[in-house]
Design a binder for these strands. Structure first.
Lengths: 215, 215
DNA sequence: GTGGTTACGAACTAGATAGTTAATTAACGT
DNA sequence: ACGTTAATTAACTATCTAGTTCGTAACCAC
């Protein structure tokens, strides 16, 4: 009568358990930093027990690295879907900047993980083979846009793809990562709706203005 | 015979002890984050004992807040010495950007403290009355430069002082704060000498290019 | 000098925290 | 049916860590 389906609602499911640990751990690490995160707290927020964290991940540090690997891999997946090369160079780079803006806006937890990792001088990223071999498709895209723009004479400034990527990332990352201290000191919430749209336009204008160079 | 001088090499000196605690604590917090910092470790790196931390600061959190207050106050002092208003608006804003670049370059520990504080959603800054009432002289300076530039027709773009300050800070802060993950993922050390000068010029060109607007 | 106050040191503690031990149960092939 | 293995649970522990207790010594006013 009560035949359990092999797939579907199983009581023992390694994949599901692992995924749940990673999801809960990501929240906990992003909220409290590496040292501030509590393994017991992660355990309490799961349907399973702390033992499973050690069963699947071995240690707090390896769990943290697994969280980083998952987060970075997902972000790279999104980067691969960027499609702006049908646009003219100026519009392509502006759109890329605005999409980067949207992407940072939508992935606050990832940004916190990156900030945390920088405090630790990226020591965990460097321990991960997965992350060392993660390509950076966005750099090739920027390279091609820059070449096209220079061929047409739209871009004068000589800066390479990494520089441009850095400039765009800096703006988008800072707005989200530093929103709290910035808000406390300047009384402006950069992530509030009334500023979001303006800043989004601003990042596009900024890169384009820079690449166009001297009038 | 062995009369101790009252000033000079005293064995008991509240000011010196407090200052040493703050200096060592700043290093420890900047290196390890708030939760990762160890009160015992701070104590070991001092000539005095852990007891004195609690004697003068009461708790780990209040010590951390005191570190933030000292660091922010010093940074504001430097901002007050900025002198660019004798320059034409375009050069003034470019120079301001480059000096901001230098300043971030020279205060890595401060930048880490700010990153850490953002991970904690600025909860400690908000607890500090000192920091709440710390003015922001740089904003007035930017305002005046923008007004002068618009009056001359050099600047077209309409952005307020906070926006411009944010744009400059984002670039300068990101280069230092995210150097480790950026380096690990893109294979470029943004703080290395061979990139420093170019990026310094870049931040000036970026703001000027943005403010000049459409050619 | 002496009484009081401020600055200081060594040893201690209660609770938190990462990691473990060992026993148990579900799934699955044969 | 049944033995094997992978998944899971509950209770335990060694260590670490923020914060304390209590006693002592330097400094100052008089």
């Amino acid at each position: 009568m009560t035949s359990q389906p092999t797939t579907g609602e199983r009581r023992r499911d390694a994949d599901r358990t692992k995924a749940e640990i990673l999801a809960v751990a990501q929240r906990e690490f992003a909220r409290n930093g590496y040292a501030g995160a509590r393994v017991d707290e992660i355990a309490e927020l799961m349907r399973t027990t702390k033992r499973m964290i050690y069963y699947y991940f071995g240690s707090k540090e390896r769990l943290y690295i697994a969280v980083l690997e998952k987060a970075y891999t997902e972000v790279r997946q999104v980067e691969r879907t960027l499609d702006v090369e049908h646009l003219a160079p100026v519009e392509a780079i502006r759109t890329l900047a605005e999409l980067t803006f949207d992407h940072h806006d939508a992935h606050r937890e990832f940004i916190k993980l990156v900030s945390i990792e920088n405090i630790h001088q990226a020591e965990h990223i460097r321990k991960s083979e997965v992350l060392a071999n993660l390509g950076t498709p966005v750099l090739d895209l920027i390279s091609r846009i820059l070449d096209a723009g220079r061929a047409r004479g739209d871009f004068v400034t000589k800066a390479d793809a990494i520089d441009v990527h850095m400039m765009i990332s800096a703006f988008c990352f800072f707005r989200v990562a530093n929103q709290h201290t910035f808000g406390a000191l300047f009384g402006r919430d950069m992530t509030a709706p009334e500023h979001r749209a303006r800043l989004r336009r601003m990042v596009g204008e900024m890169v384009v203005g820079y690449l166009r160079g001297d009038p």
